[in-house]
Design a protein around this nucleic acid. Sequence first.
DNA 1: TTGTAAGCGTTATCAT
DNA 2: ATGATAACGCTTACAA
Lengths: 329, 329
Amino acid sequence: VAKLAGVSVATVSRVINNSMTVTQDTRVKVENAVRKVNYKPHLLARGLRSRSGNLIGLVVPEVIMHAFSCFVSYTDDSLIEAGYNMILGNTHGDPDREEKFIDNLIRMNVSGIIFSRVSDKSRAFRILESTNIPIVVLDRSLQHEDVPHVVLDNYEAGRLAASHLYGLGHRSTACVTGPLEISLCRERMSGFLDYYREKGIEIAEELCFEGNFKFESGEKAAHYLIKPGSDITAVWAQSDLMAVGFMKRLQKANKRIPDDISIVGMDDIDLSAMIDPALTTIRQPFRQMCEKAVELILLEKELGRENLDHKHIVLKPELVVRDTTKSIV
Amino acid sequence: VAKLAGVSVATVSRVINNSMTVTQDTRVKVENAVRKVNYKPHLLARGLRSRSGNLIGLVVPEVIMHAFSCFVSYTDDSLIEAGYNMILGNTHGDPDREEKFIDNLIRMNVSGIIFSRVSDKSRAFRILESTNIPIVVLDRSLQHEDVPHVVLDNYEAGRLAASHLYGLGHRSTACVTGPLEISLCRERMSGFLDYYREKGIEIAEELCFEGNFKFESGEKAAHYLIKPGSDITAVWAQSDLMAVGFMKRLQKANKRIPDDISIVGMDDIDLSAMIDPALTTIRQPFRQMCEKAVELILLEKELGRENLDHKHIVLKPELVVRDTTKSIV
DNA sequence: TTGTAAGCGTTATCAT
DNA sequence: ATGATAACGCTTACAA
């Protein structure tokens, strides 16, 4: 290609990779030629030879859910910044697709995989163990796992919600969880329950409704939990969407928020600030999680998984008080 | 690799690519070997030689906006179905990033680019013209362009909103648009205005508020349009988010929806059905748009851009009537 | 039907 | 400091 400008292909490669073993003289010559032919190195061929491409895979269960579209956007940002390109896999919560896609990634020799697993049932790790591709688990981890990961302190999130409600005087509360096959949902619930337990209040099992993070399951939860005779004064939902569904059902039943029932959500999606009344919620630091995940995977690539000092990054949730919670003392 | 099982690499390649010039006998032999070593072809090396990889790029302005996260999800679905992998670029509405990313795609020799441009100002086409990579413009096209595209009939969407409101008896209406530098916003507005004009009603320029598709600009629009003395009875917002912002501001001012003012949105995002009252809106067939875009780009890859019969696919919007519009006759 | 060898666009090694 | 040349993992003429 650009060697039609005096030198050998090797030298061109050196110029492009800023090898310092090249004269200023020839460097300029090559750079001119490059500009003239408008030459662009082929990124994939590069990866082929040097055994290290510029591709990093991101695996998420559902792009259209707010939390994950944040992951997609923010991870992409950080990767681009670091000079990588992102290849995205949407598993739709299906372990088969998950496995298939990860297989694809391996076959592309990606430099790393950032992985938000479908559920605790994910089998995909078996495949990954046989390679030495750097991997970081994002958001959905298992407690006992040794794999590097970046997660929220979900137990603390539960305690935070509980402490806010308890502080406002609520003694009779309920909890709407995500799918309990996802371990972070169990952790959140434990945090919530434990806090109340420490205060001498045992939340009955019937007051924990298992939803699926979506709007409709929030509505269902309200239907199930708020019966005539129920004395619940507050609820924590493990996603804002469920919280909003809960509110909608309540408003239909002519309950007033927060006067009759206080509600806390989780995630702090845009919607939370838009609705009326605006939702009190627990914010997850999505952007920071993605930044850390990218940092970690780059580090892992450089040092090897074994030599990683801090393989486990745990970030803190933050309480955002708006208008759906109210003191009842 | 797997040629340690009797044959030559060429034969292995033939087996894997289902070349029919191979004996059932050796085929079985090779397949066994492949299974034994758990051999996986390198997808990128493949693309290098055969000049046709399995990668297709998707360029969107903002992953976190609902419409675009639909594009991401649905396009990925269709691509996976067709045996491709998607590489995603989030341009954040920045022509520079757009250009840079498209450059990257070209340098990876992707088999195609599906492209939802930043705005009419996008310079990226200049780069693309110099290659013969198949390209399909999704959603945001320019009227006079010859590039293959898949778009909504935005003019018709405007007419649809207008005809619904006119049919309900609304004679004094306003319109909240997206950024007018995006041509589809202008088309939508024209459709809306033209319909009313044909009925003998000229909508004054001051009654068209230019927003940016987001919630806040809907609030601003309401603040601007609904002054004391204004006799507007209905509004069309070019995005559901703006419609919801509009509603929120109205509710704050103690206007009743739809009794005092009818509202029509656009997109039919999940939120529309969640809020109270549920939003009447114009639905875009996002899934279908993505399917068509993938079909088109595959066809373009096969036939060449010149031999494409139908380069321009225009899909129809659909009115979804809910609770924010009401007859005033 | 199968093997041999060339080639895709890079980088890495080894002379020079 | 630079040039040949091999190599990366695959596909594809062409020859056998």
